[in-house]
């Protein structure tokens, strides 16, 4: 499934790296439910959120400057940071 990472810039403890925000990738696997770190980091009552691994091509992340366009980066992203493409 193709997804895009939200290009949001809220303050706080965010586990979505800045360099992947706004980028498009493919879900590699679903991992399961985890406490939302954006609340958990502050000892707030946290909701369970689905975590998935997303595969991005270097070409998508770094554009023309990519070292090798077909190499990939895989990262865990919470689904509330993703939208279907």
């Amino acid at each position: 499934m193709k997804v895009r990472v939200h290009s949001h810039w809220p303050p706080g403890h965010i586990r979505t790296p800045a360099y992947l925000r706004g980028k498009q990738g493919e879900i590699e696997r679903e991992i399961g439910l985890f406490n939302n770190p954006e609340q958990n980091a502050y000892r707030l009552a946290s909701e369970q959120r689905a975590l998935v691994r997303v595969r991005f091509t270097m070409a998508e992340v770094w554009g023309d400057g990519a070292e090798t366009p077909d190499d990939v980066i895989e990262a865990e992203i919470y689904t509330h940071w993703l939208e279907p493409v």
Binding site: R15, T16, P17, I31, F34, P37, L51, R53, T68, D70, D71, V72, I73, E74, A75, E76, I77, Y78
Partner: peptide, 15 residues
């Protein structure tokens, strides 16, 4: 080698 794909795994969250 150029014909081998490099996969970088960024441990961003719980794994």
């Amino acid at each position: 080698a150029p014909d081998v794909q490099v996969r970088v795994h960024d441990s961003t969250a719980d794994m």
